[in-house]
C-alpha cells in the first residue's frame, strides 16, 4: 500500500496548479523511491515530468509499486477545499480504484477525508534521451515569468538566442517588436553557461503555461540544444523537480 504525508497542502496545491493547465489526465507512478508523473499535452508539443523523492514527504511508505490514474481537475477541486497549512496524507491500496486524501489542520482539531475515483489510463511513457545541452541559463523564476508574459503581447512565437554575452528573448508581431536581454550577474542570480551559441523559436503560449510552476521555486533552469526540445526546470524543495519540455518550431 501507499501512504505519503506532506507537511503542508500548499506544496500539493502548487504542484497541481503547475500541471493542470497542460495536462488533464495523468498517471502518478509510486514506488519505494518516490513518485513520478510524465505526460504530454494533447497536441504532443510539450511534456511535463514530475519527480518527488521520498525526502519531499514527512512520512512515506510504498510497499509495492502502484500507478494512480488521476483526473487533475478533480484533484484540484479536492486540494482547493483544504487550507494551505493543513497536512495531507495520500493513501491507496495495492490495486486501488480510489485515492484517499486526508487533511488535518495544524492543531489537529479539524480533519477532512476525501476519496477520489481513479482512472484506468493507458498512457505512453516516452524515453527522454540524456542531452548535453549547448546552453544552460539559470535565473529568478519571477523574471522568467515576467519575460514570457511580456513577450506574448507581441507574438505567438518567441525566439530565444543564447551566447556568452547573454540570453535574448525576441518577439515580432503586428504591434511591433520586443527584445529582452539578460546578462550574467556578478551576484549569481543569473548564470549563463554556453558551450555553443544557439537560436531557436518556440510557441510563447506554452512557455507562459510553464510559468504556472513559478510558486514552486525561486529559480528556474532553462536548457537549450540544437534540434532538441527546450527544457525548463523548477526544483521542488531539494528533493524533486518539475520539468517541462517544449518542441522547437522548425523551418517549414
Amino acid at each position: 500500500m501507499l501512504e505519503a504525508r506532506l507537511g503542508e497542502t500548499q506544496l500539493l496545491k502548487k504542484i497541481v496548479d503547475a500541471l493542470k493547465e497542460i495536462i488533464s489526465l495523468s498517471t502518478l507512478d509510486c514506488s519505494e523511491t518516490g513518485m513520478q508523473l510524465q505526460s504530454m499535452d494533447n497536441s504532443h508539443v510539450s511534456l511535463v515530468s514530475l519527480s518527488l523523492q521520498t525526502g519531499c514527504f514527512e512520512k512515506y511508505r510504498c510497499d509495492r509499486n502502484v500507478s494512480l490514474g488521476l483526473d487533475l481537475k478533480s484533484l484540484s477541486k479536492v486540494v482547493k477545499s483544504a487550507s494551505g497549512d493543513d497536512s495531507v496524507t495520500l493513501s491507496a491500496a495495492d490495486k486501488a480504484d480510489k485515492l484517499l486524501l486526508s487533511f488535518e489542520s495544524d492543531n489537529k482539531s479539524r480533519t477532512a477525508d476525501y476519496e477520489l475515483k481513479l482512472l484506468n489510463l493507458d498512457q505512453d511513457h516516452l524515453g527522454i534521451p540524456d542531452t548535453n545541452y549547448a546552453c544552460t541559463v539559470q535565473m529568478p523564476s519571477s523574471e522568467f515569468a515576467r519575460i514570457c508574459r511580456d513577450m506574448s503581447m507581441f507574438s505567438e512565437t518567441v525566439v530565444i538566442s543564447c551566447t556568452k554575452q547573454g540570453i535574448k528573448f525576441s518577439a515580432n508581431g503586428d504591434l511591433g517588436s520586443a527584445n529582452i536581454k539578460l546578462a550574467e550577474t556578478s551576484k549569481g542570480d543569473i548564470t549563463i553557461d554556453v558551450e555553443e551559441p544557439i537560436t531557436q523559436s518556440f510557441a510563447g503560449r506554452y512557455l507562459n503555461t510553464f510559468t504556472r510552476a513559478t510558486p514552486l521555486s525561486d529559480r528556474v533552469k532553462i536548457c537549450l540544444a540544437p534540434e532538441v526540445p527546450l527544457l525548463v526546470e523548477y526544483s521542488i524543495e531539494d528533493y524533486g523537480y518539475i520539468r517541462y519540455y517544449l518542441a522547437p518550431k522548425v523551418d517549414d
Binding site: A203, A247, P248, V250
Partner: peptide, 14 residues
Amino acid sequence: KSKQGNLMSFFTKK
C-alpha cells in the same frame, strides 16, 4: 516560415 515541431520526433516510446 516555421511550423511547430512535435515531441514524438525527438523522444522515443518506451
